[in-house]
Design a protein around this nucleic acid. Structure first.
Lengths: 335, 335
DNA sequence: TTGTACGCGTTATCAG
DNA sequence: CTGATAACGCGTACAA
């Protein structure tokens, strides 16, 4: 158990340098030699030590994946897409999850944990503090944001503005003028968060329809089912006159649907609900939504990182389209 | 950028050995010395190279996490629980996902990818081939199975037998005698899979109620929503006389509910449905289920691995309880 | 309690 | 195209 590179070298009658070259597919190795080395290596069941290789080369063939959760629809789908892409490129994925509370508090990202451990970092939908972004930049590693991040970084994200525009215009077209909104986070004060862009675009669409943007119509969940429940309850308490709810994620919309049912409000006869994501269960639940492809965003982010690793120049902003999926949960304004 | 251990040693006026000891909290370091080293290290923003440490010590402080998916309810919840536990113990988590097709085909696990890269392996609900298990054993690393695995290994799993018993007895008590079942996988022939135990226990419960276990009443999904749809459709085509469906996961049950609605069958008036897991959306959808705590299983599995790493003896079989959660989707047999 | 010095298993440089 | 050998940065016996 545990043949080393010199065991292979000895058995193949070549030097360790040649074994290394042959196994990594480098040029300047006679095809005949390479074949022999390959054969011997597999006979000996040789597997290079990643630690030794990293120490010597400075590369780890590992990408760090920072995510606030696995449970939320967006994150788990992005992780799935990114992992698949990275693994098929021969890269390992190091997981760093952060327990983000509903108030968005969490411990800071410790970039020390990433130093010399990964070749690049993929950040998923984390509202980062400015200091954290600086720390990440200081790692001087390829860095890609998915679903978050400032315009100064390479990022992959859905068209947050179009998302809100589609949702609001859909509701407005159905006659709604008193529309409650469930945003992602109150504590997220970063300038470029998706939450912010969605909120701004929604406000603009409402304004374009001549509807005043009343702050009492906005409540905050944390992208979760549970958060959506709470937000919907507060919203209905404060503004029982709303005829529609626009939630920034389907999971929050599910929570809202539960609250509405508990309160005996019929959907969509008395109140309409629309979410965001394109969750698998929307069809069953009948939830209208603005859909995005999260797995594809994970794949795109991973591909970007891999390209940056080769030194290739990459575009800095990959925008994914969204599409309106009307279902049973949205209908004409009552009365 | 990138202070080394000897930079710290020099600045602190001690040897590298002392720095190493002080930083890792080993005994036999004067408290005064340790404090000084700690201060200097943080001033220099020193972070040890994991590769070098692994190479020298043989340990990686990394646990490999093998999972067939992130999207499925069980897997994503276990991952969330395990990651949290491992990270707070200072361990990294290396992700290995496997694209399992609906026919359960996938590429073999390449244990070469794990060699010298992890200190232990956590396997989540993967129906493994015998050769794969042998390969994993041969790694000679702490190995824990969650939601799968033979009795010869350390494993954490829900009480699969009780699960089926609860579900079937619930339906039988409601008068159902023609019960369709949606199992996880036809291709899973391993002797000890949860799928197998659930199937066996269901058959026994049916037999105890004097109901014949008709093979035409069993169809196969792959634990997914989509798989559940297909299975339910085939089931209804083959046996339009069923009055209830027992699906081995809530997500498959969701698929079944969709098919029933599409065919105009009312739940539970004409047909009852029960799932397994305790999915967050059961309340909204009204799905009866046998619930388990998947995050706790992830935490338990991680804790076991950590204990094994210290050499402590651990129990070999951690069983998690299940509980029946009846909701609107199950009711008395029609007629 | 602390310091010295060797070894971990590769990669990469340079000479052949 | 191939071989010898010096890093890579730390952990750890062993000595002091």
């Amino acid at each position: 158990m545990g043949a080393g590179i010199d065991d292979v070298a000895r058995a193949a009658g070549v030097s360790t340098a040649t074994v290394s070259r042959a196994l990594r597919g480098l040029p300047n190795v006679r095809e005949e030699t390479r074949t022999k080395v390959l054969r011997v290596a597999s006979q000996l069941n040789y597997a290079p030590s990643p630690s030794a290789a990293s120490l010597a080369s400075g590369r780890t063939r590992t990408i760090g994946l920072l995510t606030p959760s696995f449970s939320r629809w967006f994150h788990r789908n992005v992780v799935e897409g990114a992992e698949r892409t990275l693994r098929s490129a021969g890269f390992d994925v190091l997981l760093h999850a952060f327990d983000v509370g509903s108030d968005m508090t969490r411990r800071m990202i410790d970039t020390g944990l990433l130093r010399r451990r990964v070749d690049g970092v993929l950040v998923l939908g984390l509202p980062l503090a400015a200091t954290e972004i600086m720390d990440l930049d200081r790692l001087d590693l390829p860095l890609v944001f998915i679903g978050a991040g400032s315009p100064q970084h390479v990022r992959v994200h859905m068209d947050d503005r179009a998302c809100s525009t589609l949702a609001v215009e859909h509701l407005v077209a159905l006659g709604h003028r008193t529309i409650g909104q469930i945003h992602a986070s109150a504590a997220d004060t970063s300038r470029w968060s998706p939450a912010r862009e969605r909120a701004d675009a929604a406000a603009e669409s409402l304004a374009a329809a001549g509807i005043e943007n009343d702050p009492s119509l906005v409540e905050y969940g944390d992208f979760t089912h549970e958060g959506g429940r709470g937000a919907a309850a507060r919203l209905l308490d404060a503004r029982p006159d709303i005829t529609a709810v626009y939630a920034h994620s389907d999971e929050m919309a599910f929570g809202a649907l539960e609250v509405l049912r508990d309160r005996g409000l019929r959907v969509p006869e008395e109140i309409s609900v629309i979410g965001v994501d394109g969750h698998e269960l929307n069809e069953l639940v009948g939830l209208s939504s603005v859909a995005q492809d999260a797995q594809a965003q994970g794949e795109a982010g991973a591909t970007l990182i891999l390209e940056m690793l080769t030194g290739a120049p990459v575009g800095s902003d990959v925008l994914f389209p969204v599409s309106l999926e009307p279902r049973r949960s949205t209908g004409p304004v009552p009365g």
